[in-house]
Write a protein that binds this DNA or RNA. Structure first.
Length: 469
DNA sequence: GCGGATCAG
DNA sequence: ATGGCTGATCCGC
């Protein structure tokens, strides 16, 4: 929870200063213990790790639950901190399970299909890594609250959310996830960047100084990580909190502050033209399409290829039921045409009707998503029947409006209040009222076809996700 | 490939 | 009257 929100909720709250050096040192202590359980464990972050304890359990002739119990005990004794763990058939499930008995607990999900499917069936989509605030709401809008709900909507999900999301959701429904674990260092880095927030800045000279400073910061990181970048990306956040990025491909791979500045300056100047009177509150530089400066030895040690030409490991998408039936019907048409001729006609008619119904349903679902996208913040869930109606209210620390005094609903509301869309709406409204006064409002870079609908805020590419006809 | 958006930690 | 920073991935164009 954001500090300022917590402080409003609990004015007597005592806030300690961060001490990252301390956390890093402590994390190292923990890692020195877990390495004994899996020498190739994967650090997911400073306080998370994935272990494949298959081998450990085998050689020590011990059950996974026992091994983890022992690991947690050992960590507690040696480092004086408590940890939680999940034990499951793959990384996705283990991550979910690790949250089941927090703090200082563990949860084991049987490595058996039926148990896994049953577990997923009632699991809220939000519990899955990769489903955030936005996706959760969109899924909710079409009626998918739990991973079990996914199956009944399967025919619409690819069209509504794309093929990748569809594959992802099917894997959620089935409880599938990766079973590989490898040291983090063996993952190939894709970018190096730095950014910083500061008080509003509009002075072009100051902005150039800031760009120079940013370039110098990035050079440090490039040297530390031993990379050059083929692409250079400039990121800015305007005083309105709108974020923009611009990128260039310099004539050579870059990493020196000198070059980073030289090639990013034109992007900054162009943005100044695009948004006359531009005031920034954040600036960042990032290099992508990295080229390693490390000695070949080190690279080869981790088994990196010189220039990896993408290896398509993507599993092929399962063909839908309707597609299969279609194929079946086509096959049948090959042989038994005689007898089945009248049936075929009937069948085709029924199929056409079904297609039209599906189309109608799809549009309804799509509209449902759009509806919540726009004024989702205004939707107040109806009090459930049978429950006594709450008499008292809690004031939201952000919008100040009274909210139902239910912990869950209150937290959901705070979530909503902090959501980007809400923020953007507010920004837009204030920007409009400002422009009615005199202050020049940033002029937008060509916004395509926009005929006054949607309050002029940038054309959300997902807003109209389907085109019929 | 570019630029926007979402997500995680 | 918005949490900041780093990095990854996906989508539409």
């Amino acid at each position: 929870m954001a500090g300022f929100v917590a402080k409003k909720l609990c004015p007597e709250l005592i806030m300690l200063k961060l001490n990252f050096d301390k956390y890093i040192a402590k994390a190292q202590e923990v890692r020195e213990i877990i390495v004994d359980y899996d020498p190739r464990f994967e650090s997911a972050s400073i306080d998370e790790a994935y272990l494949n304890i298959t081998e450990y359990c085998r050689t020590n002739d011990i059950a996974p639950e026992e091994a983890v119990e022992q690991l947690r005990m050992e960590v507690h004794e040696k480092t004086k901190i408590t940890i939680s763990a999940g034990i499951a058939a793959n990384a996705k499930l283990a991550k979910i399970c690790s949250n089941m008995n927090k703090p200082n607990g563990q949860f084991s999900l049987p490595r058996e299909r039926n148990a896994i499917m049953a577990f997923m069936r009632d699991l809220p989509t939000r519990k899955v890594n990769g489903v955030g605030r936005v996706f959760e709401r969109e899924l909710d809008a079409v009626g998918v609250k739990t991973c079990g709900d996914i199956y009944q909507y399967r025919q619409y999900l690819a069209k509504l959310f794309g093929d990748k999301a569809f594959a992802f959701l099917m894997q959620c429904y089935l409880g599938l996830g990766r079973t590989t674990v490898q040291p983090a260092e063996e993952y190939e880095r894709k970018s190096v960047g730095t950014e910083s927030t500061f008080g509003e800045m509009g002075n072009p000279v100051e902005l150039r100084d800031k760009l120079r400073a940013t370039a110098e910061e990035l050079e440090k990181d490039m040297v530390r990580t031993q990379f050059k970048g083929r692409t250079l990306c400039l990121k800015v956040k305007l005083h309105t909190f709108e974020v923009f990025t611009r990128q260039v491909i310099p004539p050579k791979a870059v990493y020196l502050a000198e070059d980073l500045y030289k090639y990013s300056l034109p992007m900054l100047s162009k943005l100044e033209q695009e948004f006359p009177g531009m005031k920034l509150r954040l600036m960042g530089l990032r290099c992508t399409h990295l080229v390693s400066m490390k000695k070949p030895d080190t690279m080869a040690f981790f088994g990196f290829k010189r220039k990896s030409t993408s290896d398509q490991t993507e599993s092929e998408s399962p063909s839908s039921d309707t597609a299969k039936r279609k194929a079946d019907s086509l096959d049948n048409a090959g042989e038994g045409q005689w007898e089945s001729w009248p049936d075929e006609l009937l069948f085709e008619d029924a199929e056409r009707q079904e297609r039209e119904d599906e189309m109608q349903e799809l549009e309804t679902l799509s509209q449902e998503i759009d509806k919540r996208r726009h004024h989702g913040k205004e939707i107040v869930p109806n009090p459930k029947k049978g429950e006594e109606v709450e008499e008292d209210w809690w004031d939201c620390p952000i919008c100040g409006r009274p909210q139902a005094a239910s912990e869950r609903e209150f937290n959901e509301h705070i979530d909503l209040c902090l959501s980007r869309q809400t923020i953007r709406d507010v920004v837009q409204e204030t920007a409009e009222s400002r422009s009615r006064d005199q202050t020049p409002v940033p002029k937008r870079a060509k916004m395509g076809n926009e005929k006054g609908r949607e309050r002029g805020v940038g054309g959300d590419p997902k807003q109209r996700r389907l085109c019929f006809g």
